[in-house]
Design a protein around this nucleic acid. Sequence first.
DNA 1: AAACTGCATCGATGTTTATCGATATGGTCA
DNA 2: TGACCATATCGATAAACATCGATGCAGTTT
Lengths: 100, 100
Amino acid sequence: MTDAGIDESQADELAELFRALADPARIRVLSLVANATAGELCACDLTGPLDRAQPTVSHHLAILVDAGLLTREKRGRWAWYRLVPQRLDQIRALLAVPQR
Amino acid sequence: MTDAGIDESQADELAELFRALADPARIRVLSLVANATAGELCACDLTGPLDRAQPTVSHHLAILVDAGLLTREKRGRWAWYRLVPQRLDQIRALLAVPQR
DNA sequence: AAACTGCATCGATGTTTATCGATATGGTCA
DNA sequence: TGACCATATCGATAAACATCGATGCAGTTT
C-alpha cells in the first residue's frame, strides 16, 4: 500500500461538504426543494414545515447555498431556491468504493 | 405538490449519518481503510497519518463504527477496522435526485 | 412618501463536539 | 506473576454550531 488515500486538504473540503448535510433541518430543506413541483421553493414556504424561526431558516439556507447544494434567486421580495443536482452527484461519486 | 418530502425522523437519521462524515479526520480514516491492501487497518496504523493523539483517533473510530461505516474486530491486542461498503451505497442511494 | 413585507444580518445563549492528558482494561510475553 | 502493550474510557477545555429576538434592508403597495 503505497498510496495513503486522499490528502489533508481534500479531506477538509469533503468534511465541510458533509457538515452542510449534517443537520435535520437542512436535510428537510433539500427534500422539500427536491419535491417541489416547480423545481423551486421560496423561503416563506419553509418556515412552516421546518418549525423553526425565520432567522434560523435563513441561516440554514445560507449554509446550503454556500455548500453549492442550492442556488438562490431573488425575484421581487421573495428568495427562490433550487437544487443543484450536479453537486449531489459529485458527492455520490466520492462515496463510491473503488475496488470491491 | 402533495408530498412534503421525507419526514422528521428520517431527516434526523440522515443528518446523524452525515454528521459521522463531517470531520476531516474521519474522512481520512475511511480513505485509508478503503485503500488498505488487506482491506483492513489496525488502529495503530492510523495515529501517525492522522496526526492526532491516540484517544482522539479512538474516538473517531468509535463514531464511524457507531454509524455503521466501519466494523471493528479485535484480534490479539490490536483492533482491526474494515469498511462497510453497503453503508456507503445506502448513502449514495439516498442522495440520488428522483426525477430530473 | 409612508406603511408594509419578506428576508438577511447581528448579538447573545445554550448545546454539541474535537481534542488530549490521565487512567482503566484486557491481552501478550517473559 | 509481573512487566508491557494496544486500545478504550474518563474528565476537562476550548471551539464550533443551532437557535432566536431584535434590527436592518430592499422591494412593493397604497
